[in-house]
Amino acid sequence: MLQMPDDVILQVTGLKKYFPIESGFLLKKVLGHVKAVDDVSFTVRKGKTLGLVGESGCGKTTIARTVIRAYDPTAGTILFRSRDGVVDMAKAEKKDLKRIRRDMQMIFQDPYSSLNPRMPIMEIVAEPMKAHGVPKSVYEERVAELLKLVGLRPEYMRRFPHSFSGGQRQRIGVARALALNPSLILADEPVSALDVSVQAQVLNLLLDLQEQLGLTYLFISHDLSVVRYLCDQVAVMYLGRIVEIADVDRLYENPTHPYTSALLGAVPDANPKASWRPHDVVKGEIGKATADIKGCAFAPRCPFAKPECLEQVPELISVDPVNPEAQKSACLFARELSLPGVSTA
């Protein structure tokens, strides 16, 4: 039997996901790999939210899809506490996945492509229940209950997705994810396709549901402002690796990795008086995940880079000797640099 601390629901260790680059006419030849996720470890505690943030191509979505085994991992373990005990998702048999996934569900980014336009809402929300053999009499009632839970009228259940706005569609997606009473929800950019005035509705819904149902979230976002309201702990990713992971306030107020600080400085806050540092934002663009990087992946863009940064891959180590879990950074000079964050003033 696999073991995990009682309050941990998901423990990912050394997770790697490489996608082969193939070429060839009849016989495919592997030319190299895209290292979408490269040696990532984190834990998610029951009832809490871990945020995975980063720019496009940093591997955050791949992590979510690998954790739920939509992709098979290249290496690593994914320990998950299901209702039948702790399982390793990385090694779970295909036939067991269906049972395990009752406890782990996903919310998608695009409210349009995630609902089959040819099915009424009723069928969409009931799909997980039907797959698990729940009889019609039971799931009809449950769908009504779920729709109410996410703030939609149960009378709407015979309508088709095209009659709903983006925000309402996203609620339907949430209802579907909750159908089997999962304990962990992987939310992949659930609000980034929505308009600002609607985005807040869905964010608040996620917060309310977490309080009501004791849900745990793995929340994936590129939007640092959104993450601040939802996540207890935040992991910043760059080119397939976590460069900094910390409790939310520490990360925003005292970033220790230059990339985190750069990200925070780049966000234009909706306050003309707030500081915005576009001029000292990092230069250049994100590199390719195919290259064999010897040193720190961020070093070529880092304003503080020293020759040694190009020599070795920095490990994700604690920067706080008193509370080692509170903040870890993958920068050789994490303790020496004093980087600007977000001031609460």
Binding site: A70, R101, M106, E127, H132
Partner: peptide, 9 residues
């Protein structure tokens, strides 16, 4: 929506 169906079991 196909991925969702697969994840739903």
């Amino acid at each position: 929506f196909i991925v969702a169906a697969r994840l739903a079991g």
